[in-house]
Amino acid sequence: MMTKKITMRVNGREVVVEVDIRESLLEVLRGRLNLKGVKKGCSVGECGACTVLINGEPIDSCIYLAVWTDGKEIRTIEGEETGGKLSKLQQAFVDEGAVQCGFCTPGFIMSARALLDSGKKLTRQDIIKGLSGNMCRCTGYQNIIRAVERAIEDKV
């Protein structure tokens, strides 16, 4: 078994982990760092449930080798709140009824976070495109789009 010691910043904190070279980032986040908010719906980049931000960009952590994160900045759903207080984005998901079973929610919030942090002026179409790598079977996406729109209006 080959391992590699990597250093990354996860949700603002520096973390040093010895990862197995075979592991996906998803497995390391859930298994070693206990960040269970990162979900697994397919393991092959199709559903977006495992979305995290790497250096600010949303990626599917299931098809990202953990060894690649050495020196990188990772953000997961657990890093979205501050001091136990929901971010405006999270609050918008609650208020707009964008959550049902909730399994897709962390992934959607991370994709939406990247959109909001892009600093771009976003149209509805931009939002839809930005969320198109995340699947949801419960909501028909309607309230998720509304939540992101609301978060933008509230200037997160």
């Binding site: 980049g45 979305t51 990626i59 990202y64 990247a114 495109k129 930005g130 198109s132 790598g133 995340n134």
Partner: peptide, 9 residues
């Protein structure tokens, strides 16, 4: 191509 996540890698 794919979705944003795939386009990012």
């Amino acid at each position: 191509i794919g979705g944003p996540q795939v386009r990012n890698v």
